[in-house]
């Protein structure tokens, strides 16, 4: 079960981060967003945190031994894939129109 959790972790974090970033974008365009905070700065900050977190997961997975070489390989490659996906899906925050 621990192994299953390890395999599930990287992409689950990707999904949560992805949804949170989308939610933050919605929030920056909503009536609740405080006037003092620059939306793009907040989005870039959140995206950077998210990518860092994925990177941390990759590091931890690569460093910790798994029950078998197969499990180690799959866990590490899933973490690398999730990190790449986090980068890929976060890049639009750098330049695109936020609220139109």
């Amino acid at each position: 079960m621990n192994l299953i959790l390890r395999l599930a972790l990287p992409w689950t974090v990707w999904l949560i981060g992805f949804s949170a970033l989308y939610g933050l974008q919605g929030l920056t365009c909503s009536r609740h967003w405080p006037a003092g905070i620059e939306p793009r700065a907040a989005l870039i900050g959140a995206a950077a945190l998210y990518v860092l977190l994925q990177g941390g997961i990759l590091w931890a997975q690569a460093a910790r031994p798994a029950p078998s070489p197969f499990a180690q390989r799959v866990a590490t490659s899933l973490s690398a894939a999730a990190l790449a996906a986090a980068l890929w899906t976060s890049l639009p925050v750098l330049g695109l129109t936020i609220c139109d």
Binding site: Q25, G26, L91, P92, T97, I98, D100
Partner: peptide
Amino acid sequence: PHLGLAFFSA
């Protein structure tokens, strides 16, 4: 908004 779409397009 286009940024929202961009996340999902990517």
